[in-house]
Structures are given as C-alpha cells and as structure tokens.
Simulated scan of single mutants.
Amino acid sequence: MDARIEQVVSKGKCTFEDTQYEVESNTYIVGDDDEVIVIDPAHDAEAILKAVGDREVMAVICTDGLDAHLNAVLEVAAAGEEDEDDWAPIALHRHDRILWRDFFARLAKEEEDEDDQQALRSLEPDIWLEDGGIFEIAGVQLEVHHTPGHTPGSVSIYCEQLGVLFSGDTLHRGKPGSIAGNFADLRQQLNSIGSLLTPLPKDTRVLPGQGPETTVGDEDARWESWGELARESDD
C-alpha cells in the first residue's frame, strides 16, 4: 500500500444563510506518486494543484455543498486540462444539490457572456455520493458515510486501511463543525456524529474540514456533552 495523505490549508469566504464569513479550510489529497483523489478543494486551487503536482486527479469529493468546498472545485477538477472530457469527476451528495445550484447561479451573475452564464447554471456534479459508496485509490478504499446536519448532504469519508476519517465540517476537533459558530440542524448533526463514531476504532485519526486533527476516541468521549449546545440552539 503506497497511499499517503497530504494536507493543504487555505483561507477564504463561506456564505451561510446569506452572510459571508472568513474561514480557514483543510483540503486533503489521498493517493500515491501517480494518482490522487482530492477531498474538499477549498479556496486556493493554485496551492492545491501545486501539491498535486504532475499526478493525475482521479476524482474530487466535496463533503458538503457550501461554497468553501466549491469555490476551487472546477479548477482542481480541470487540473490544467482544457478539454472538459479530461476533467476529473466531481462528487457531491444529492441532498446538497440546491446548495450547488445556488453557488453556481451566483457565479453566473458575474459573467457577461450569456453562454458562460448558461453553462454555469447547467453544471451538475458528475457523481452523486451515496451512503456506503466506495472510491478506490492507491490500494485503499474511501467509504462514504452520509452525515446530515451541517448541511442536508454532508458526508464523511472513512478509510480503514489508513485508519483515517475525513469528517468534513460535520465534526471538528472538540466540537461539532460549524461556520463561525452557526449550526443549520445541530440535533441531526449530533445524531450523525454519534452514529458515525460509535463503530469506529478509537484510535482512528479524524481529519476535519477546519482546524487540527483529533481522534475518534477523543470526540466520542465528548459527544454527550454537546447536548447542551443543541438545547441552546433550540432557544
């Protein structure tokens, strides 16, 4: 098994409920010397593609449909290829389709050419992620877990061979993931986190969409204490 994980940290803006926030996001590159899968291409396509180098991007996985994970997705999928037939497929959960469409509709408004506007409005992901779906890269498997709450289509990606959970913005170190402390559906998010963590080995590394890494054991021990956050969000 030659698979390894590389991380790119970048800063940019994310829109949540019509308000823009400055966020620092993690992008993960999983693969070997020849091929990679990019998870959550955030903000800075140039930095991500520099880390990819001359390796082939086999897929781009977005763990949710918020713009922090979409604003560099086309450039990373293209990876310098002009012919769209040579672009890497982009994967997103279907329940975040409206977030995808809202994002590209906003981009379309910035274009003067009507054909470019229409092209952006008609864009769709190439792959609709499903719970239990599998991606293979460099001798390892990346398993999709639907973990709604942060967004309806949020997913986490588990790799047993590497002992890693890519939790997106469903789970951050020490807390459920949020955008500047804002939660869309915290109760559902906590249910997703609990169901996700329970069966996994406690020493599994958790690589989140924002902030430093943690472990399944550390976050599982904190999970019940987050109920107070849910009660506060109901008030």
Rank of each mutant, 00 (worst) to 15 (best):
R231E: 13
T215A: 10
D235W: 11
W226E: 02
N182K: 12
P152G: 09
E75L: 10
E228L: 07
M1E: 08
T151C: 12
V9D: 00
H145G: 00
D34K: 14
A138I: 11
A47M: 02
V216C: 04
G181E: 00
F16A: 12
T198P: 04
L92W: 07
L120G: 04
R55N: 05
W87H: 14
D102A: 14
L142D: 03
G217Q: 08
V144Y: 03
D44H: 14
V36G: 03
E6C: 03
Y158N: 01
S192F: 09
V206M: 08
Q20G: 07
D218R: 04
I137E: 05
L66D: 06
D64W: 01
V8K: 03
D67M: 14
D64F: 01
E111Y: 03
F135Q: 06
T27E: 03
L186S: 13
H93P: 09
G80K: 08
D18H: 14
L171Y: 02
I61P: 02
T19F: 15
E143D: 05
Q7M: 09
V164C: 00
F103C: 11
I48Q: 04
A88P: 12
R173M: 08
G209D: 14
I134S: 10
E35R: 13
V9T: 15
Q20V: 14
D44T: 14
E110T: 12
Y158D: 00
A88L: 09
A72E: 13
T27D: 06
C62W: 02
A3P: 08
A72R: 12
R205M: 12
Q7S: 07
T15S: 08
I5Y: 04
E143N: 05
D116L: 11
W87M: 05
Q189D: 10
P148I: 04
D102T: 15
G53P: 01
S156I: 00
N182H: 05
F16L: 12
I5W: 05
I39M: 02
A68S: 11
G80W: 03
G163T: 05
L129H: 10
M1C: 06
K11A: 15
M58L: 09
T147N: 03
I179A: 00
D203I: 12
T214Q: 01
L200Q: 05
